[in-house]
Amino acid sequence: MNRLNELFAAKKDNLLSIYFTAGYPELGTTLDIAEALEKAGVDFLEIGFPYSDPVADGPVIQHSSEVALQNGMTLNLLFEQLADLRKRVSIPIMLMGYFNPVVQYGVERFCKKAAEVGVDGIIVPDLPIYEYETLYAGIFKNYNLSNIFMVTPQTSEERIRKIDALSNSFIYLLSSSSITGTALQLSVNIEDYYKRIKAMNLVNPAIIGFGITDQKSFNKACEYASGAIVGTKFVKLLAERDYLEKIPGFIKNIRA
């Protein structure tokens, strides 16, 4: 059991997660942002570690990664910053980023360090199922880390079943096949897709991500899944002056 498992055991719906890129807009505010989000009532967090070539991200998160790298963010530094994580933040934390920085850091070393500082889950969009299963699943398990997989409207039922079997916290449901920051268009097709997933009665809860920007889209997502993740919209807020103070209001606007 890690904090993610405990959270999902205790709370079944209306869960809210926020994504932000570590090192953006300033190098040293990673824990300040996390703390403010917890106080504002967010259920769990995704802290992004930046990468130079983020192919699954739209312009907003790309830009945040570029700035974070210019500011000097690295995995080494991030883990240093997270040394005090569990003194200041108690909600579940996931690290999210691309695979190459993890490969360079060393997958085992990365998992060990993540577990040490109190991280609960990892999201690496470009680590495929086959490689995870054959090479890395044992390492993740040893350090009690949940690996989170994504599912899109194009993912086959067979593959979703496989992902469900490999998961032990939640499944990241992409609201459409797109890069981050694309507006959620709740077409009939997407509703069908949500219904289809719901009807599969998966072991793991589903959390909807990509395209959640306001109360309306959050509530809609929660009709079909256990909760939703807000990324791009929040990263945009971080570009504003006095962003830390604006966090409570931002969260209230999404989940009244």
Binding site: A56, P125, D126, P128, M150, T155, R159
Partner: peptide, 11 residues
Amino acid sequence: GGAYIPEMLYP
């Protein structure tokens, strides 16, 4: 080699 791609590209 391999195919290190996000799920969105998988299909």
